[in-house]
Amino acid sequence: MLRDITIGQYFPGNSLIHRLDPRFKIVITFIYIMMLFTGDHIVCLSVGAVFTAAAIILSQIPFKMFVKSVKPLMPFLILTAALNLLFISSGDVYFHWKFIKITSEGINVSVFMLIRITLLIMGSSLLTYTTSPITLTDAIERLLSPLKKLKVPVHELAMMMSIALRFIPTLIEETEKIMAAQKARGAEIDSGSFMTRAKNMVAILVPLFISAFRRADELATAMECRCYRGGEGRTRLRQLCSAPRDYAALAVTILFYGGAAALGIVLK
């Protein structure tokens, strides 16, 4: 159940996508998101879909993993689609009952939004699937470094982010252990009525919070023992360096974006 959570998960590999410079990957992801949101025509969106499919194939990560990344958000997606479907009242009316109207426009918009958000999740999952959390935060730090001039604590923010990402799997593992231990004492977590389940959540959350605080404390002590004091003058173990393929990937992405935007204008 918890293993289905794929946020921040990284699949080691050596595909073209894995090898791209993480800074470029972040910029490309941003352009990709913009691409998905340009133009309201289904053709513009299919440009995005083609781009996503190509990137997924290049990444050599099983498609199943992308389905998994969308799964936890499925209820929200369906809810949004349902709301769009029921409450958009322009276009041809197919079905009318009291205040509910199902119209051609409603169907269009809800299907459109569904595809758009699915693509959005898949594309951004690709970023974390193919980039280790450490390089990812390194890249974010580098991309945001101009903000240091404005006294924004970029390094600290990046550090917090990498710690948070680093601990997601640890906390999931911890939760599973605690759940197993409480199940062994007969706690009903997967079964039983809503009230018993809610009550039993306490038996999981209390130990989980205690251990999270303990871990945070231990980590802080360990960092201080090693004289950690933030970003000023720190050098890096892994230098980020860009290669021609990074510029090529960026160029291709911009091309796709331009294509989607142009189609959007033409088809309006």
Partner: peptide
């Protein structure tokens, strides 16, 4: 079955709540 076969995990003190 879980009541008949009691299982104490490693570091069980972390399950106290």
């Amino acid at each position: 079955v879980r009541f008949k076969v009691g299982l104490v995990f490693q570091y069980p003190e972390y399950q106290i709540f």
